[in-house]
Amino acid sequence: MKNLLTTAAAVAIAASAASAQDVTLRIQTHYATEHPTGQMLAKFIDDVQVMSDGGIAIEMFYSSSVVATTETFDAAINGILDCDATGGAYQTGKNPAFQFVGDIMGGYETPWQQYSWLYFGGGYDAAQELYNANNMQLIGWSIYGQESLSSSKPIAGFEDVKGWKFRSPPGMETEIFQELGASPIVMDFTEIFTALETGIIDGADASGLANNVGLGLYDIVKHATYPGFHSMPSDHLACNKDVWDGLTDQQRRIIDTAWQKLAFQIALANEKLNAEAAAKLVAEGVTLYDWSPEDRATFRKAAQTAWADWGTRSPEAAALLASHKEYMTQLGLIE
């Protein structure tokens, strides 16, 4: 009898395992394998595979090796990929509302405030409507923290940005800095180094302080803002909704849990890396500027003017902006 029960249990386990079919998810990221976030993504892959006992495999395409970074979202929609691990800010041409899930600009001060909007401030449901309308499912964010501006001349406050020529990503940021009197120049990330060397630009909005060190920016320029205040982009994991819905509850829970671990560790790791980079740069003669509360307020005021304009560009943008403003008011960030 004991052997019969053991055999029956084994058959039941095998049948259960067979019902949860093994899957392979094809995901593209814009990060390189050697980038700190690329290294963390490798840990995410390992977590998913171990927790699923090998039932979920992930084929990660680094450095946007399948399609251009801006095309990753559409590649997932169209089945070329299964998931997109870049960021919503790349999709503002599809719907301006993606600005408010990609980079709120001058809004939250810490990754933890921004995460709390997503998970506890109504953000997840508000953002999900936007993603689902494109047959995509937002799984979660990863936020590495505030970005730092790098400059060949002092950048101690908003007075210093008047006439300041700098590399800017496209979108809302250019409008905010133009409002403050700067001269943003939209150029590809790969062109920053040469443009600084040749004096085409005075500075750049590239990434966080530690990442900027890795790029070699402070071999050329000797001024930077730190801690940052102007931009805190959120990378996302978003999957084709049909693919996501085709996973089992267990598989979805594993991916969600592994991503949340990745997201929070990215924020923690970058806080440490940025602090180490700041100490190293000061010792090497780079001047770091922590903008005053008054100058930060001036920037946030200019940002809110841009928010209001972007909020008129689509119903989805208006809804997301309203959600952010309600939560920022609760946090005391805006009145």
Results as ranks from 00 to 15, higher is better:
77 I>L: 05
108 Y>I: 03
329 T>M: 02
188 D>E: 11
335 E>F: 03
202 D>K: 00
96 P>H: 09
95 N>S: 13
203 G>N: 03
330 Q>N: 11
36 P>V: 04
330 Q>F: 01
52 S>W: 04
133 A>W: 01
335 E>S: 14
172 M>Y: 05
81 L>Y: 05
306 A>N: 08
271 E>T: 07
287 T>S: 15
76 A>E: 02
156 A>E: 13
80 I>E: 14
33 T>G: 00
114 Q>W: 05
218 Y>K: 15
110 T>C: 02
92 T>Y: 12
262 L>G: 00
100 F>A: 12
165 K>G: 00
9 A>Y: 04
56 I>N: 11
118 L>P: 01
245 D>G: 04
221 V>A: 14
118 L>Y: 15
152 S>C: 06
121 G>E: 02
47 D>G: 02
98 F>A: 08
56 I>E: 07
86 T>K: 04
315 P>N: 13
312 T>C: 08
153 K>H: 09
332 G>Q: 10
136 M>A: 05
82 D>E: 06
219 D>W: 05
218 Y>V: 12
153 K>Q: 15
183 S>I: 09
238 A>E: 07
162 K>R: 14
245 D>L: 08
200 I>F: 03
239 C>G: 07
329 T>A: 10
147 E>R: 05
93 G>N: 13
116 S>N: 14
152 S>T: 04
109 E>A: 15
